[in-house]
Design a protein around this nucleic acid. Structure first.
Lengths: 159, 159
DNA sequence: TGCTCGCTGAGCAATGTGCGCAGTGATACG
DNA sequence: CGTATCACTGCGCACATTGCTCAGCGAGCA
């Protein structure tokens, strides 16, 4: 669960140069290949590393518009709404939250006009009372994990 | 930019079994190895596939709490705030948006108590007027791309 | 007709992987 | 204090995969 410094270096190295391979990693990190292999196996079975799936850019796929929608759900309709949203390809992720809304989802669309279609499809469902949408203009910090990994590795070091 | 059906199958296959390798893919898809290799190169240089970085689970790293914070920024302080937030490891991503807030960021923390520390650090900066936070309880649809890829591949097919 | 383009099937050298093994140092435990 | 456990090292081997190249071929197009 907690990761040490070597784990941290492995993850960061892997994040920076994903195609690198175990042998080359062991060379860069100055440890034996078996060690890197064992660490990687452990990290994966721990669930720290979920996988190495391709990172696909929706914009390059023709979906350059991203938006976040806050949804208010009618009491007791939560699971129906979840199932509904799971069927919409443009819904990239969905969270249930505390606070003013009940759910928060990330959407993509082919254009601002197309976003209207997506939103209609999202909210065109009985259990959804209200939706408020924020269109993303810029993404100054794209989804990242390296700083957190470094932080976690350092915390472990101190303990 | 647009992807065809074979591209779609490549991405989906890669997303489901990331460790698979070019040769095995060509066998599964029933095409020549060189074809898969050429398609992959093209997808990567197109930017459709950004890379194959490890998908790290913050919860497994000891950060089981996720939250979304909507920030209101004082006029003209945008870039300072961006720079500030980029220095906080617990800020996993940051977007500037239209709508009631000015920015939306995804945070993680070690606990609900720790979230308070993170938020204090995030908003403890001059340009930030107000922050409203929604804590994530459940994640019914984790970040996904496969349905969108399939959609994009089908759209291309029809055209 | 002649051109380009993408796919095929094949081959080759180089590299990496999965696996096992013995040795070693540190740590925990009876 | 002796010993068991554990992680890491350094090594070797068989095997599969990669990166690259080549010629052949059908489709689309001027």
């Amino acid at each position: 669960m907690a990761i040490d410094h070597l784990d941290g270096r492995i993850i960061v190295l892997l994040a920076r140069e994903p195609r690198i391979g175990v042998l080359e990693m062991s060379r860069r990190l100055g440890v034996a290949r078996g060690t890197v292999q064992a660490r990687l196996d452990r990290l994966q079975s721990n669930g720290v590393i979920r996988g190495f799936g391709p990172q696909v850019d929706p914009a390059a796929l023709g979906y350059p518009v991203t938006a976040f929608a806050t949804l208010q759900i009618r009491q007791g309709q939560g699971s129906d709404v979840r199932a509904h949203l799971a069927t919409v390809p443009e819904v990239l992720e969905l969270h249930t939250t505390t606070g003013s809304g009940d759910m928060l989802c990330r959407l993509v669309a082919r254009s601002n006009a197309d976003l209207q279609r997506v939103i209609d499809r999202v909210v065109g469902f009985d259990g959804i009372v209200r939706a408020s949408t924020a269109i993303v203009m810029e993404n100054p910090v794209p989804l990242r994990i390296i700083p957190l990994v470094e932080q976690a590795a350092e915390d472990r070091e101190r303990s």
